[in-house]
Amino acid sequence: MRPRRFTVGRSEDAVHPDTMRAALAEFLATALFVFAAEGSLLSLDKLYKDTTTAGGLVVVAVAHAFALMVAVSVAFNISGGHVNPAVTFGALLGGRISLIRAVFYWAAQILGAIVAAALLRITTGGMRPLGFSLASGVSEWHALLLEIIMTFGLMYTFYATALDPKRGYLGTIAPLAIGFIVGANILSGAPFDGAGMNPARVFGVALVGWRWSHHWLYWVGPFIGAGLAGLIYEFLLIQPETAPHTHQPLAPEDY
C-alpha cells in the first residue's frame, strides 16, 4: 500500500464530538506538562536564585522527562498524545492527521500552555516565568539549528514508537521514550538556548512572563525539525508495501 498523503479533512470533522474530545485531551495534557515543567524552573529559582548549575540542569531535565511522559500517556488513547504543535505538524505532513484536526490541536495546545503559565504565576505569588533566551556567544542561527536537531530527534522518536504501523510492543513504552529524548535534549541544549522544542510551551511562558527575546526561532526551528522527521520517516523508512492503512487513535479520517 502507498504511504499516507497530506489531507485537509472533511468540514463536518470540525464539529465532530471525537474532535472536541481529542482537542480537550491535548489542552489538559499540555497544561499538565507546562505546569510541571515550568514549575521545576521556578522552584529552583525560588530555592537557589540560580537555575544554571549542573545539579539544577539535571533536575529540570528529569522533571521535563517525567512530566512529558505522563502528559503523553494520559492523552495517548484519545488524541495520540502530541502535546506539542511541532509534533502535530510532523504528523500532519506524514498524513497521520488531517489539517482540520491539526488546527484544533494547535489551538488546544497553545491555550493549555497559556493557562498553565498563568496558573503558575498566580500560585507562586506572582513569580514571572523565566522563559527562553540565548546564552552568551550563541547566535540566533546556532540556536535555530539546535532547535531543528533537537526537535527532529523528538519527532523521529514519536514516529518510531507511537505512529509506525509496525511499532508493536514499542507502542507501550512510547510515552517513556518520548519523555527520555526530551530530557536528554534538555541536558544537551538547555545551557545554549533553553531547549524549547515545543512552540506552545515557549509561547505560554513568553506571553505570561512577557519575555519575547528571539521568540521566532522557537517556532521556526521546531517546525522545521519535526516536519523533516515526519517526512523522512513516513516516506523513506516505512515500507509502502507493508504499511497498513490505519490512522492514529480517533483520527477524523476513520469516522
Rank of each mutant, 00 (worst) to 15 (best):
A184N: 06
S40H: 07
S133E: 02
Y156F: 15
P165N: 11
V115L: 15
I122V: 14
R5E: 09
L154V: 13
D164C: 12
A200Q: 09
G230V: 01
G112E: 02
H215L: 15
G81F: 07
G94Y: 01
T124L: 08
R167I: 04
L130Q: 13
M1P: 09
F158T: 01
Y218T: 09
M1N: 10
G204E: 11
F235K: 15
L99T: 09
G95P: 04
L231K: 05
F89T: 12
S136W: 00
T51N: 11
S136F: 04
L250D: 13
T161V: 14
L68W: 07
P222C: 06
A36K: 04
A36E: 02
R167F: 12
P249H: 08
A118Q: 08
I181Q: 12
P85E: 04
L92H: 01
L92F: 13
A37N: 12
N84G: 01
M69N: 11
R2Y: 10
I148W: 08
R10N: 12
G183H: 11
V208N: 09
R167T: 06
T124E: 08
A206I: 04
G9I: 04
D164L: 09
R101Q: 15
I122A: 14
V72F: 05
I78R: 11
A23H: 12
A177K: 06
E12I: 11
Y159Q: 09
P240K: 13
H64R: 00
L236G: 10
F104S: 13
F132I: 01
V103D: 06
H16R: 10
G153T: 04
T51R: 14
S139Y: 04
L119Q: 07
M20W: 15
L146Y: 06
L176S: 04
A23M: 14
A160N: 09
I110R: 04
T157K: 07
L176P: 02
V60I: 15
Q109H: 13
G230C: 05
E147N: 13
G168L: 08
D50A: 09
F104N: 03
A195E: 01
G125C: 07
G179W: 02
V103Q: 05
F132Q: 03
V34N: 10
A108I: 05
Y48D: 09
Q248M: 12
A14C: 10
I232Q: 12
H16Y: 13
A54L: 13
R101G: 05
